[in-house]
Design a protein around this nucleic acid. Structure first.
Length: 316
DNA sequence: CTTTGTGTTGAT
DNA sequence: TCAACACAAAGG
C-alpha cells in the first residue's frame, strides 16, 4: 500500500478463496475429518488470532484484559498491528513480530509518534487501519528529518524545498457544492493524477489526504462510481465545502508535492497564478454561478437537479 | 444476512 | 499473558 495516502489495506487480499470453509459432511461417518476441517488455522504470529471468515484478528493483553486491535485481511498486517500496539503498551523492549528490523531515525520518529498519542488513540488507528496514514502525516507536519533527505547532503533542519505542481483545477458545479457530499473529479484528471489503488474501482475507494493553504489536512474518500462512471471525492467533502463556503463557480485547485512524498494539496479559490487562463463569467439572476476556462471543455456544466418541485435557487 | 470481537477456559 | 473456541453482539 502507499502509506502516504491510503488506508484501506493490502493490495493482495482478494486472492483468498474461502480459506476456511467449515463444510459439513453430515452423511460421512468420518467425524474426525469433519472436526479437522472445522478447526481454524493458528497463526505463527504473536497476538494474531484467526477469524471464522478467513481473516485475522489482532489482540494484546494488558492487566488481565484483552485489547482488541481489529481485523485484517492479511495475517502479516495483523502481526504488524500487534507490533505497534506492543511498542506503545510495553515500550521499546517489547517482543514483536517484525518491528526491530530498523534502528534508524525512522524508528525514533515512530517512537515519538507513539508516545505522543494515548494508547486508546493508537488502538483506534489500528482498528481503523489509519495508523500508517497518521504516522506519515505527523512526519510531514514536523518536516523531513535528516533521514528523509539524502544522507549528508544537507544539514539538520533542512528546509522543505520540494515544490508543488498544479495537477488540475475544477470549477465546481452546483451539485459539487450541494447536499450530495461529493465532488466529481473529471475522469481524465483522476486517472492521470490520482493514485489508482485496488479499492478505488473495487467499490470501497481509498482515503486521500489533502493539505489546504492553512496547513489543515483534509481527508476525503476517493472512489469510482460505476453507476455514473465517474471518479468522486465523497466522505469529508461537504465539510470542506462548508468551511470554505464554496459556491458553484468557485475554483478548486489540486496540487502535489514534487518531492519524494506525494503529498496532495487542495486550494479553494486559489489566487490565479501568472498567465492563468482567462475565465468566462456566467451570471444567473445577477449571481455568478459559473466560471469556465475559455476554450476548455470540462464536461457537463449544467446538471439536472433531481427534484420534483420547482427548485429554488437562493441568492448567494 | 455477514462479520466482529467478547466471553470464557485452559495452557504456559 | 496468551490463544482456542463458541457464539452473542454489532453492523450492513
Amino acid at each position: 500500500m502507499d502509506a502516504s495516502s491510503i488506508d484501506e489495506s493490502t493490495a493482495s487480499d482478494s486472492t483468498s478463496i474461502s480459506p476456511v470453509t467449515p463444510l459439513l459432511f453430515h452423511s460421512s461417518p468420518s467425524a474426525t475429518a469433519e472436526a479437522e476441517s472445522r478447526k481454524l488455522p493458528s497463526s505463527r504470529f504473536k497476538g494474531v488470532v484467526p477469524q471464522p471468515n478467513g481473516r485475522w484478528g489482532a489482540q494484546i493483553y494488558e492487566k488481565h484484559q484483552r485489547v482488541w486491535l481489529g481485523t485484517f485481511n492479511e495475517e502479516q498486517d495483523a502481526a504488524k498491528a500487534y507490533d505497534i500496539a506492543a511498542l506503545r503498551f510495553r515500550g521499546r523492549d517489547a517482543v514483536t513480530n517484525f518491528k526491530p528490523l530498523h534502528h534508524d531515525d525512522h524508528a525514533a520518529v515512530e517512537a515519538d509518534f507513539l508516545n505522543s498519542h494515548s494508547k486508546l488513540e493508537i488502538v483506534d488507528m489500528l482498528r481503523k487501519h489509519t495508523y500508517n496514514d497518521e504516522l506519515q502525516q505527523s512526519k510531514r507536519q514536523r518536516g523531513p528529518t535528516t533521514a528523509d533527505s539524502a544522507s549528508g547532503t544537507s544539514p539538520n533542519y533542512s528546509l522543505w524545498d520540494s515544490k508543488r505542481e498544479v495537477l488540475f483545477e475544477k470549477t465546481v458545479t452546483p451539485s459539487d457544492v450541494g447536499k450530495l457530499n461529493r465532488l466529481v473529479i473529471p475522469k481524465q484528471h483522476a486517472e492521470k493524477n490520482f493514485p489508482m489503488g485496488e479499492g478505488v474501482v473495487l467499490g470501497k475507494g481509498m482515503l486521500l489526504n489533502f493539505e489546504d493553504m492553512g496547513g489543515k489536512v483534509w481527508r476525503f474518500r476517493y472512489s469510482y462510481w460505476n453507476s455514473s462512471q465517474s471518479y468522486v471525492l465523497t466522505k469529508g467533502w461537504s465539510r470542506f465545502v462548508k468551511d470554505n463556503t464554496l459556491r458553484a463557480g468557485d475554483v478548486v485547485r489540486f496540487l502535489r508535492s514534487t518531492g519524494p512524498d506525494k503529498q496532495l494539496y487542495i486550494h479553494a479559490n486559489p489566487t490565479p497564478g501568472p498567465a492563468i487562463n482567462p475565465v468566462h463569467v456566467v451570471k444567473l439572476f445577477g449571481v455568478n454561478i459559473l466560471q469556465l476556462p475559455v476554450g476548455k471543455t470540462e464536461g457537463v456544466f449544467l446538471e439536472l437537479q433531481p427534484t420534483k418541485k420547482q427548485r429554488i435557487i437562493k441568492p448567494l
